[in-house]
């Protein structure tokens, strides 16, 4: 986990996806081949930091590795460039959550291996409205 996290840290820290140089389609997670035009010429592209909630859930039983964080709110957010991104939604009271709520990215701790292990950071979302 420590190395696979390191490999993707720019993806997680900066919401760094990619973009087709031929048709400008943008992706997060990044793709290997453009889904729209088939081009293999893609360059890294930072995603916009704001969007809106398309759907969400309050997960009350978390996976191994996330113990102590429950409940966690998870949403699928459509960013301002149209790209859909999965992420946790934080600092938001459950009754304030609605489909269509505006959100922005924040930099947060995702989880830690243990009190002696590595800490993994990444993007999450927080509600603006």
């Amino acid at each position: 986990m420590a190395i696979s996290y390191w490999r993707r840290r720019d993806r997680y820290y900066r919401l760094l996806g990619n973009k087709c140089t031929r048709c400008n389609a943008e992706y997060y997670p990044p793709v290997y081949i453009c889904r729209r035009c088939g081009s293999e010429s893609l360059i890294d592209a930072e995603m916009p930091g704001t969007g809106k909630i398309l759907t969400y859930t309050i997960l009350r039983e978390v996976m191994s590795g996330f113990e102590g964080q429950q409940p966690i709110i998870i949403g699928i957010v459509q960013l301002d460039n149209g790209v859909k991104v999965l992420g946790q939604i934080v600092d938001t009271p459950i009754d304030a959550l609605k489909i269509g709520c505006k959100v922005r990215t924040v930099f947060r701790k995702i989880r830690e291996e243990s009190s002696a292990g590595q800490i993994y950071y990444g993007y999450k979302f927080t509600v603006l409205c």
């Binding site: 964080q69 946790q88 930099f107 701790k109 950071y121």
Partner: peptide, 9 residues
């Protein structure tokens, strides 16, 4: 700070 915040975040 929330449980997912530390000085880094």
């Amino acid at each position: 700070a929330s449980l997912d915040e530390d000085i880094t975040t």
